[in-house]
Design a protein around this nucleic acid. Structure first.
Lengths: 231, 231
DNA sequence: AAAAAATAGAGAGCAGTGCTCTTGACGGTG
DNA sequence: CACCGTCAAGAGCACTGCTCTCTATTTTTT
């Protein structure tokens, strides 16, 4: 009864997976603009129109790849964090930064899909926001735990954030519970600093200027950790 | 003689300008992926093939737009800097940051062309690197002048950059003459931090999290100024 | 077990793209 | 004046996303 109904659904699930696998390979080699439903269908020995039974539009395929990408990055970040002693908050932060950079270098086109220019007509559906927060939650947890452990000591060299920031801070505190507004502002700074540096390296802004980005990245992430108040 | 030869060249220059103008308008409304040579030709009352007399490929048109974009951003940054008292280095840095953000918000698709994901097959030709450095030179000059004036006082909360960074620092010192390696590393941090924040706001990473990005941006840029050692 | 309904694939077709090639006209130069 | 280079036009190639119809098969319902 269930097995028979599953017969069709199983082959459907199988084909869906095969489509995303091929699409991910095409994405990795040709980049997002070169991803073509027809090419994927061709490689599957399918006629182009048949693929629309599985993904009603190219954007839907891209959405699937985006979700996969966020999950892959999130998992890489989670594993990097898990590989560190829980009390070594600074080390966890550095490991997590390195994991982001290494994942991005290993999957540049997928990374560009997540953190590059948005496709003009494309509106990210609701399903993406969960996976998109996976890595963010890790950074937040590290900072929150460091604060909770009483080891967070942000250097007092910045002016306090303006009062009007308090409103946004409320929302952001869902990710970094328990910390004051000042730490939240610093967290956003570290967060954008991390991805700003990965973006620049990956998108070519460092070309001919920085030949050893790994060294500078490690150093700057350590510095950002200090900005956060990590020891 | 010259006037007659110019007659043709003048109309050619005129048409070239008209093409880039229309293309820029299309870029602004539809984004880079939606920029179509045929659509531009159509709007000019030209047949599509005729446009290839002026731009041998779509990439060449994009290159022209990229150069224009870098120049526009560079000019905006230069003007912002010029509008400040020379001795107010911190104010100049803030003004310049604000100029970048405002230009990006006003020209999101052009900004994405400059600082977003690179087009896979596209290789930026040599002509772009000059204009691409226009804004960078402004940041560098501010920092170098602050250092020269003796007002640069970077907080001693970071470890010194690793020795292997010295090699890259030599190259980067062409933009920020006279400053020690530590300041150069901080400058890269501020530079990537600035664009990291603009990217996140423009590319949608702040969605539903930060509703008042202008406030946080100003505050974080001030903080980055402090990281640099600006008063 | 037979009938009805849902699903999958095939094929043709539409409108659009970048780009190439050939053809005919016009303008500046010897 | 004759010539040669430049230009626009048009047709055409290979490709894209996507829609529609038709047929075969599988699943569900009667």
């Amino acid at each position: 009864m269930n097995a028979s109904r599953t017969a069709r659904e199983r082959v459907r699930a199988e084909l869906t997976r095969e489509i995303t696998d091929i699409a991910r390979r095409h994405l990795a080699t040709d980049g997002a603009p070169g991803l073509s439903l027809r090419a994927v269908a061709r490689e599957m020995g399918m006629v182009s129109s048949a693929i629309y039974r599985y993904f009603p539009s190219r954007d839907d395929l891209l959405t699937a790849l985006i979700i996969d990408g966020y999950n892959a990055l999130g998992e890489a970040v989670e594993q990097a964090d898990a590989g560190c002693p829980r009390a070594d908050h600074a080390g966890r932060w550095r490991a997590v930064c390195r994991a982001v950079r290494e994942w991005a270098l290993a999957h540049p086109h997928e990374y560009a899909l997540l953190y590059g220019s948005p496709v003009p007509g494309y509106q990210a559906p609701q399903d993406t926001i969960g996976p998109a927060m996976r890595d963010t939650l890790v950074y937040g947890r590290i900072i929150a735990e460091a604060h909770e452990a009483g080891v967070l000591d942000p250097p007092a060299v910045f002016p306090p954030p303006p009062a009007s920031f308090a409103e946004d801070a409320v929302r952001l505190r869902a990710v970094i519970p328990g910390v004051p507004d000042d730490v939240i502002a610093r967290a956003v700074m570290a967060w954008t600093g991390l991805f700003g540096m990965v973006n620049f390296e990956l998108f070519g802004q460092f070309n001919n200027a920085i030949l050893d980005p790994a060294t500078l990245f490690d150093h700057n992430m350590t510095a950002l950790g200090r900005v956060l108040g990590l020891p």
